[in-house]
Write a protein that binds this DNA or RNA. Structure first.
Length: 638
RNA sequence: GCCGGCGUAGCUCAGGGGUAGAGCAACUGAUUCGUAAUCAGUAGGUCAGAGGUUCAAUUCCUCUCGCCGGCACCA
């Protein structure tokens, strides 16, 4: 007897082994049809896997969340089958489900073309229409290796060779296509449906290692139904509209050009935004007891050898040579800050010493890594180093987490995820110091009320770190802030302080940044807000648009008063219709358009139109100015 | 850096071995208008750069640079 317990608490009994497919059929034909896979005792398995002992069973249907991953994985297999049919000489490798879809990596001598995607997609639809049964088999290791070698699938054979000895080799077949796979899979290709689409062709290294050969990756997306697919494609279009590179041009914030690849040119409006953010950060840091400094851009190579950066990052540093010496543009600020710390003798009474710099850095990033403001070669960090004792790590960490949360909140990011990265296998420092540092950092995180996930073994070689990840308005994650504990650099650069025991001690250095870099953070903000920045950060807060020339004088007067109240105002006196002006300034994402005509002039009012609103609100001039300047106040003020 | 794609006016894009075209923007003029495009006219280009093939190259080929999609990298 096999007893199958179902999620509703009921159970069914069978004389012998049974499959989830049979159980679903017994419950009802509708369920059998909708079934995708089964969850047996917590693990997802094929519908046709025999259940031989008592078990908890849940039928996963198309509508359930877990179905998506299976559908996507199956879609990858159908893609592989289609590719194999169309190009029998290519080799298949791996093809997992990923967020929003799947990919499959192929080894093929000729590159795929965009037209190939169309042909592949058509063939995939045919395979779905064939409704081929998908069958699972367990093979002996040697047999599997021999088989895949015999059909010329050397990558597959390599994967099997590297699988742990005790891992069962499961092989799935659909039609003539046989693939090594852990599963689970649908019971037949017909269940895949038609809500999939091939998206792009890309290159990818075999096993993710740049020393290996490049494979050709095809990305696709797959959903439970056409409606979801359509919604996803729409979402992509919307995301494209908020691309900071596009908005940067449309809003006239910045540009790039090839003579300075990866180094932004900030236009007046973009620089206004940059300055507003910097002023805000500067005040936040002042209030939090940081001391701002400025260090040189160019250092003798020997300096970077001492700090240890030359050895690792030489290739990624800009250098120049004169008087037989090599100099490098600073790629980071830490060693410079240590030099300031080392000036004069420091006492334990000086600690914690919080040293901040809006440090301009240059890194020779690989050409393929550049991406708008998100990855640049010239950038400015909101960098600071806290020199403190081991005992102070916790309290300083907590203070920092609090500051970071306040800043993110002011900048409009409510969701912050924290990753705690602890000691890596290769590291410096005694284990007992690591114990204390990790404990202190964790304590600080918890005390700050931040939720965190563990990132085991991912800490820096010199100490544990926290990574702060922002979630933006459309659900994308951006790692911006960081807090790193460093035992190494103070040692290498011989920083010390005199303790209360009159002996020399080595300070701990906390590296920390909130924005990460101004450039990248501004990029993230532009995308988060889709260009519609908060009022206090808008480069132009109000445009005064006249309806006819009769109102020119009044418009200038209103603008002057608004400017006097600290608002950033532009005047549009052009001889254009108000509808035209509204459209233009709306597209430029100006938050408030103040229209003035004869009526406003006579009544001493302004007609305020908010970006995105349909109508406008007429208010008295004094009220409007008072309200707008209150709204424009920089948050977090003391 | 690697794989693939792309590079034509400020922007979005069409074209194609016989030295270029549209819409929007710009400029000029008319219009003075009440909330997301007023009308007309004018001007605008070493077709990314350098070589090569050809009687002739923006078009075909090679290289370089840049950008885009990924991968790798990210102190």
């Amino acid at each position: 007897m096999v007893a199958i317990s179902l999620p509703d608490g009921s159970s069914r009994h069978y004389d012998g082994a049974v499959t989830a497919e049979q159980v679903a059929g017994d419950i009802g034909p509708g369920l059998a049809k909708a079934a995708i896979v089964a969850r047996i005792n917590g693990a997802l398995v094929d519908l046709r896997l025999p259940i031989e002992t008592d078990a908890n069973l849940e039928i996963i249907t198309r509508t359930s969340k877990e179905a998506l991953e299976v559908l996507r994985h199956d879609c990858a297999h159908v893609l592989a089958e289609a590719a194999k049919e169309l190009w029998p000489d290519l080799q298949v490798t791996i093809g997992p489900a990923i967020e929003d879809g799947f990919y499959y990596d192929f080894a093929k001598s000729e590159p795929f073309t965009p037209e190939d995607l169309v042909v592949l997609e058509k063939r995939m639809a045919e395979i779905v229409a064939r409704d081929e049964a998908i069958e699972r088999q367990v093979w002996a290791r040697d047999k599997a290796i021999d088989y895949f070698k015999s059909i010329g699938e050397h990558y597959k054979a390599e994967i099997i060779e590297d699988l742990p000895e005790d891992e069962p080799i499961t092989v799935y077949s659909q039609g003539d296509f046989v693939d090594l796979c852990r599963g689970p899979h649908l019971s037949s290709t017909g269940k895949l449906g038609d809500a999939f689409k091939l998206m792009s062709i890309a290159g990818a290294y075999w096993r993710g290692d740049h020393r290996n050969e490049m494979l050709q990756r095809i990305y696709g997306t797959c959903w439970r139904n056409k409606k979801e697919l359509k919604a996803y494609l729409f979402r992509l279009e919307e995301a494209e509209k908020r691309d900071h590179r596009r908005l940067g041009r449309e809003m006239d914030l910045f540009h790039f050009q090839e003579e300075a690849a990866g180094m932004p040119f900030w236009h007046p409006k973009g620089w206004t935004l940059y300055r507003l953010l910097q002023d805000y950060m500067r005040r936040r840091l002042d209030d939090a007891g940081y001391l701002e400094v400025r260090t040189p851009q160019l250092f003798d190579r020997k300096f970077w050898e001492m700090s240890g950066h030359w050895e690792t990052f030489q290739e990624h540093m800009y250098t120049t040579e004169f008087e037989d010496r090599i100099f490098a543009l600073k790629p980071m600020n830490c060693p410079g800050h240590v030099q300031i710390f080392k000036q004069g003798l420091k006492s334990y009474r000086d600690l914690p010493l919080r040293m901040a710099e809006f440090g301009s850095c240059h890194r020779l990033e690989p050409s393929g890594a550049l991406h708008g403001l998100m990855r640049v070669r010239a950038f400015t960090q909101d960098d600071a180093h806290i020199f403190c004792t081991v005992e102070q790590i916790s309290s300083e960490g907590k203070l920092f987490c609090g500051l970071l949360q306040a800043v993110y909140k002011d900048l409009g990011f409510a969701e912050v995820v924290v990753k705690f990265a602890d000691r890596p296998p290769v590291r410096v420092g005694a284990d007992e110091i690591w114990d204390r540092a990790e404990a202190a950092l964790l304590e600080a995180t918890e005390a700050a009320g931040l939720e965190y996930t563990l990132n085991p073994g991912e800490g820096a070689f010199y100490g544990p770190k926290l990574e702060f990840v922002l979630r933006d308005a459309i659900g994308r994650d951006w790692q911006c802030g960081t807090l790193q504990v460093d035992f190494n650099l103070p040692d290498r650069l011989e920083a010390s302080y005199i303790g209360d025991d009159s002996a020399r001690h080595q300070p701990v250095m906390l590296h920390r940044a909130i924005l990460g870099s101004f450039e990248r953070f501004i990029g993230v903000m532009i995308e988060h807000y889709a260009g519609r920045l908060p009022f206090w950060l808008s480069p132009v807060q109000v445009v005064l648009a006249t309806i006819t020339n009769d109102a020119d004088e009044y418009a200038n007067l209103v603008a002057a008063r608004m400017k006097a109240a600290g608002l950033r105002v532009e005047v549009d006196l052009r001889n254009e219709k108000i509808g035209y002006k509204v459209r233009e300034h709306s597209l430029a994402k100006v938050p408030v358009i103040a229209a003035v005509g004869q009526r406003e002039r006579e009544e001493n009012t302004v007609a305020l139109r908010r970006l995105g609103d349909k109508g406008q609100k007429v208010s008295g001039l004094d009220d409007a100015i008072a309200a707008l300047s209150a709204e424009g106040a920089i948050p977090g003020g003391s």
